[in-house]
Simulated assay, not measured.
Amino acid sequence: MQVWAVANQKGGVGKTTTAVSLAGLLADAGQRVLLVDLDPHGSMTSYFKYDPDELENSVYDLFQPGSEVDMKLLEPLLMPTSNRGIDLIPATTALATLERKSVGQEGMGLQVAKALRLVKDRYDYVVIDSPPVLGVLMINALAACGHLLVPVQTEFLALKGLERMLRTITMINRARKRQLTYTLIPTFYDRTVPASVSCLRELHQRFAENIAASVVPVDSKFITASAKGITPSEMDLTMPGVQAYIRILRGLAERSRG
């Protein structure tokens, strides 16, 4: 089972779109996929038409004091989605209180990793959507994953956010036995905007060994797919954004084989 986390310490860079798009393509190829929403905003949860304010069972249950992470706890959290090949562990807005409640509790950074070990034979891929804040939830995502995907909006303010994320990766790697590898995914690219073109050029110059095989363009059909609650590839396999994620997924597959 491969575990990918999608993270950046800047919001609005396309994390949820990246997670859902890649999960959809994997499911289209016959892979069994689990999506995990660790963002208190619950964007991925809302994408699949679950209400983060109303759910009785969510990923928040993994963090309750005294809770033993076992299948009895985990099974009710595995929710179906519009795609038969994708399950979801949803988020609730209660996650926003977790930082305060987790102070002084040991082992809180490994709860998701413990849960995923229980379903390693059920799924081929896990894709984790992380909050844009370094805290216990992002630490859980980074501790659980084997490879990190970092969407980076092709504008210069996003480069500043990327620098913070790279410092976090360095910090995490000091504590990990195995180095956390990562791939940068340029998003919201518009070749008619000089600043977007310039930003992409800088990403390639500075991070040539870690940049994805393609760039994700601005594509309004992502919004349409979200409104329908279906993965972008289910709606239109030919849309430019989906074609970009196909190339990115192909590059990730080549990286894992290499």
Rank of each mutant, 00 (worst) to 15 (best):
Q2W: 10
W4A: 02
V6G: 03
A7K: 02
N8W: 04
Q9K: 07
Q9M: 09
K10Y: 07
K10P: 06
G11E: 02
G11T: 08
G14Y: 00
K15G: 07
T18F: 06
A19D: 04
A19K: 03
V20R: 08
S21K: 02
A27D: 00
G30F: 13
Q31H: 15
R32A: 06
V33S: 07
V33A: 01
L34A: 00
L38A: 06
D39R: 00
D39K: 07
D39I: 03
P40A: 08
H41N: 13
G42P: 09
S43P: 00
S43K: 04
T45L: 00
D51Q: 10
P52G: 02
E54R: 14
N57D: 11
D61L: 06
D61C: 02
P65E: 15
G66F: 09
S67E: 15
D70N: 14
M71C: 03
L74I: 07
L77Y: 02
R84I: 07
I86H: 04
L88S: 05
T92H: 00
A94W: 06
L98I: 10
R100A: 14
S102N: 09
G104L: 11
Q105Y: 14
M108T: 11
G109T: 10
K114W: 03
A115H: 08
L116P: 00
L118Y: 11
D121S: 14
Y123M: 06
D124Y: 04
D124S: 12
D129Y: 05
D129R: 08
S130Y: 01
S130Q: 05
V133I: 15
G135M: 10
G135L: 11
V136G: 08
I139Y: 03
A141S: 13
A143G: 02
A143C: 14
C145I: 04
G146C: 00
V150K: 08
Q153N: 11
Q153K: 14
E155T: 06
L157P: 06
L159T: 06
L159Y: 06
K160G: 12
K160H: 10
K160C: 03
L162V: 04
E163G: 07
R164N: 12
L166G: 00
R167V: 11
R167Y: 08
T168N: 05
T168W: 00
I169K: 00
N173R: 04
K177V: 12
K177H: 09
R178K: 13
Y182W: 12
Y182Q: 05
T183S: 07
D190Y: 09
T192K: 12
V193Y: 08
A195H: 10
V197R: 13
V197D: 02
C199K: 01
C199F: 06
H204K: 13
H204Q: 11
Q205G: 12
E209S: 13
S214I: 04
V216R: 01
P217F: 12
V218R: 15
D219L: 07
F222M: 12
F222S: 06
I223F: 11
T224P: 03
T224I: 13
A227V: 14
P232G: 09
M235A: 12
M235Q: 15
D236I: 11
T238D: 15
G241H: 10
V242C: 10
I246D: 01
I246F: 09
I246Q: 14
L249F: 14
R250E: 15
E254I: 14
E254Y: 08
E254L: 10
G258E: 15
